[in-house]
Computed example of a mutant assay.
Amino acid sequence: MKLDLSFIWQALLQLLTAIPVTLAVTVVSVLCGLVIGTAVALIRINKVPVLDTAAAAYVTFIRGTPMLTHLLLVYFGLPFAIDGICENFGWAFRSVSIPMIAFAYIAFSITAGAYLSEVVRSGLLAVDKGQIEAAYAVGMTTSQALRRIVFPQAFAILLPNLSNSTISMLHGSALVFTVSVVDINAKSQIIASSNWKFFESYIAAAVIYWGLTLFIERITAMAERRIQTYNRGGVS
């Protein structure tokens, strides 16, 4: 067996067209997951009756089951629920009109929400409670204290873990090929199917994933430097 370097380059060029799909799945799931995770974290920190138990159960279940399971549950379960509701109310809409990538968005957002809730919760708990009391003392409301005092400091604390979670979601997005979404992983299989050079094709895919990971790490490092400069009182 001889490694075909020229085919690796050809596959690499062809795989570039699949990067937007992989990035879309990653970005949407992380952003939506961050919103979900923040809400869940606040519920658990403030121990909201009933919701606290539901939030804890959600985090435990999602963290205790694989991402692929979440994707398949949404892929098979959501259409069943949507079609049943639409049929019950006499609506013409059916789940078949929903693009496949939407199921990936929903499933991975739910997954990211559970993991990021713990990241956000640890960041919020790390902020000194005395600062919140000081905010109340100067007349701030709870929402103002969170927005101006707590969240900025918590973000600086949780940024490294947020970066790690983003990288994990980037790598986990390779599972979308199971629901017929053509991302980098699926594209590499399609490219290799023409001549059975799967090894070379997967090498090209690995290079792209590696490059995207380095890009995320670079962006995180830049953000950390700007935050550190701001905290020292400098100009960011």
Rank of each mutant, 00 (worst) to 15 (best):
P99A: 10
I101Y: 01
F103P: 11
A104E: 02
A104N: 02
Y105P: 00
I106V: 10
I110E: 04
A112M: 13
A114W: 02
A114G: 07
Y115A: 02
L116Y: 13
S117C: 04
V119F: 15
R121I: 05
R121P: 05
R121L: 06
R121M: 13
G123E: 01
G123Y: 12
L125A: 14
A126K: 10
A126W: 07
K129A: 12
K129F: 12
Q131N: 09
A134Y: 07
A135Y: 04
A135P: 00
Y136A: 02
Y136D: 02
A137Y: 04
G139I: 00
M140D: 05
M140I: 02
M140T: 04
S143Q: 01
S143P: 01
Q144M: 11
Q144A: 10
Q144V: 12
L146I: 11
R147G: 06
R147W: 15
I149D: 07
I149R: 03
I149T: 12
I149L: 01
P152L: 11
Q153F: 13
Q153M: 08
A154F: 08
F155L: 14
L158C: 14
L159F: 04
L159I: 09
N161K: 07
L162Q: 06
L162S: 07
S163Y: 06
N164C: 04
T166K: 13
I167Y: 14
I167P: 14
H171Q: 15
G172E: 13
S173H: 01
S173F: 06
L175I: 15
L175D: 03
V176T: 04
V176N: 06
F177K: 02
T178D: 03
V181L: 10
V182R: 11
V182L: 12
D183W: 00
D183N: 05
A186I: 02
S188K: 08
Q189F: 15
Q189R: 09
I191N: 01
A192N: 13
S194H: 12
F198T: 15
E200M: 04
S201N: 09
A205L: 03
A205G: 10
